[in-house]
């Protein structure tokens, strides 16, 4: 369970002709057994925020501290597409991201593969799996390094509705079991309501416009009245915030 502390974060992209602000002075804190969704329209800097947290990109200004107790936190990343190495078998893809080797590491990888019900595919190449299965391997890979914090970038947006729904259920179970901190980026408000304990809303131009707790008991059935009401309430709130203005 990691703590994220983001203070006055700003990110600009400088091209030859103009400067585009992707994130504007965003501050928030996340800690403990939280599942935080970052929601917003496309182009609001959600993915950029995750890239900065994971170190793929650097910020223009501001600080990011990700800690676990008094040490640095370990991060696991799930991408929009699975991003598996197509030339390595499924189990080798998990082993590729491990910082240590050995039989117990291998056993751990196999355990997480089993958790996403893909133990039988360990020796296959990613190209032989369906899109949903590949994404499950991606999730297993992120969990297999036993991270303190999981960063997820719209992991279900490329999947069909039925596969996405079953994967959401699987992810929720794994989160409950492993008690990780999760930062989950999505443009889908229903998904956010179904999974998260807290929702952070970004508007165009990377402004943070809302930070709300979601106080509904788990398990949340997406078809239930309570979830539908919460979703409707949230959408109404967001509409009043004029998210598309820059």
């Amino acid at each position: 369970m990691a703590t994220i502390k983001v203070t006055d974060l700003r990110k600009e992209f400088v091209t030859d002709t103009s400067t585009v602000v992707a994130i504007e002075n965003v501050s928030f804190e996340v800690g403990g057994h939280e599942f935080v969704s970052v929601v917003g329209p496309s182009g609001c800097g959600k993915s950029t925020l995750l890239n900065i947290l994971s170190g793929i990109e650097s910020a223009t200004r501001g600080t990011v501290d990700i800690t676990e107790g008094d040490r640095q936190a370990k991060l696991g990343y799930v991408f929009q597409s699975a991003r598996l190495l197509p030339w390595r078998s499924v189990i080798d893809n998990l082993l590729f991201v491990q910082s240590t080797r050995g039989p117990q590491v291998r056993a751990r990888c196999e355990r997480y593969l089993d958790m996403v019900q893909l133990a039988h595919t360990a020796r296959q190449y990613p190209g032989q799996l369906s899109g949903g299965m590949q994404q499950r391997v991606g999730i297993a890979r992120a969990f297999s390094i036993e991270p303190d914090l999981l960063l997820m970038d719209e992991p279900f947006s490329h999947l069909d509705a039925i596969t996405a729904r079953s994967l959401r259920r699987e992810l929720h179970a794994m989160w409950q079991e492993t008690r990780k901190t999760v930062l989950f980026v999505t443009h889908d408000v229903s998904e956010a309501v179904e999974l998260s304990t807290r929702i952070i809303m970004l508007a165009r131009g990377g402004r943070l416009v809302a930070d709300l707790p979601v106080e509904l008991p788990f398990p949340r059935d997406p078809a239930s009245d309570a979830v539908a009401l919460a979703r409707a309430d949230l959408l109404r709130r967001f509409e009043s915030l004029d998210l598309l203005a820059t």
């Binding site: 994971s54 170190g55 793929i56 991003r83 390595r88 590729f96 991201v97």
Partner: peptide, 21 residues
């Protein structure tokens, strides 16, 4: 790029990226 980014975000070094990606 997405594979090299993936490898870097999981902390893989240049030698490993060269060899495996």
């Amino acid at each position: 790029r997405d594979l090299t980014d993936m490898a870097r975000s999981f902390g893989r070094g240049p030698a490993q990226i060269l060899r495996h990606v």
